[in-house]
């Protein structure tokens, strides 16, 4: 009995926090998603009204979903390819390689708000670094963040700039591949391409898988960069209206808390769905060494 109590005493901080900051809000938010609620007055029950409006009468909701899915489908795979590519390069035995590793890694620890502010500056169409370099090469650069065609790719580029954190994870994965495998393959006459294709990449798939899952979950909660860069707006022609940004605006700009709760629940279901889908597929392409 005493042992039971001691155990529960130790985990009690988390139990209390779980009840107050996870379970209760979780249940309350289901309820709120069926109400009209502006925080100041009591919530009013409207049944499926919010969900009906979202799915049938709100083009911005669909827009936000598309922008977010596009980001998950473009930025996340690009991040994986860039991360793996850089990790392979940085895994070479070379004098000074530690310096390169540090240089590639540094951008990923720059605070997100600072990164956003710096990109706003380097992508300034008149006097920014990028268009300055392009002009020096004789090319007129686009109005990056102010243009409906370039705003979204600009954010993707910015996400690639911070890829260094995942490079560290891939590097750790590469170090875990036993050298004996490569030696055996070389004895069998396998060239660099075959070693890459049949040893390195397959054995790296668990790490790639992890980064993919985290990347997709992150895409659905992508907020701060878009908010800071676009100063809280939805970007030119709604081109950077990310799901989490639209949800935030609904909740805090229009005080449409019931509607925002319904959006949060749809987000939750979509995240669970996509995560399960990736996990399902993972048996087909993820290899575990042992």
């Amino acid at each position: 009995m005493k042992r039971q109590l001691t155990g529960y005493a130790f985990i009690s901080p988390w139990l209390v926090g779980f009840a107050v900051f996870a379970l209760a809000p979780f249940l309350i938010s289901i309820y709120l998603s069926f109400t009209r609620y502006n925080i100041v007055t009591e919530p009013v029950w409207i049944g499926l009204g919010n969900y009906r409006n979202l799915f049938l009468h709100d083009p911005l909701f669909w827009r936000a979903l598309v922008v977010t899915l596009k980001y998950a489908a473009v930025a996340v795979p690009l991040g994986v390819v860039t991360g793996v590519g850089l990790a392979l390069l940085l895994n070479l035995e070379l004098r000074g390689i530690a310096v390169y590793r540090t240089l590639f890694f540094l951008p990923s620890i720059v605070p997100v708000v600072a990164t956003s502010v710096v990109f706003l500056w380097i992508l300034n169409p008149q006097i920014g670094l990028v268009n300055g370099l392009l002009k020096a090469l004789g090319v007129i650069g686009p109005n990056w963040l102010g243009s409906p065609d370039w705003a979204f790719p600009s954010l993707v580029l910015m996400s690639l700039w911070s890829v260094g954190g995942s490079v560290i994870i891939y590097l750790a994965g590469l170090k875990d591949i036993p050298l004996s495998l490569y030696e055996a393959a070389m004895i069998d006459g396998a060239g660099p391409y075959h070693r890459m294709r049949h040893i390195t990449l397959p054995l790296l798939t668990p790490v790639i898988f992890f980064n993919l899952v985290m990347g997709v979950i992150g895409a659905f909660q992508y907020f701060t960069q878009a908010y800071v860069i676009m100063n809280g707006t939805e970007g030119p022609n709604d081109s950077t209206l990310f799901y989490a940004l639209y949800l935030f605006n609904r909740a805090w700009r229009y005080l449409d808390m019931g509607y925002a709760s319904a959006m949060a629940w749809i987000l939750f279901v979509v995240i669970i769905g996509i995560t399960l889908f990736i996990f399902r597929s993972h048996r087909r392409w993820v290899h575990y060494g042992d």
């Binding site: 996870a22 209760a24 809000p25 925080i39 959006m263 987000l267 939750f268």
Partner: peptide
């Protein structure tokens, strides 16, 4: 309880943010 704790990591902040905000307010 450990499994419950692990699964809370998958809960997006957006789901809990409004009730938690109301509580603090």
């Amino acid at each position: 309880w450990f499994m419950v704790m692990i699964s809370t990591m998958a809960l997006p902040g957006q789901v809990t943010m409004i009730p938690v905000f109301t509580l603090f307010r």
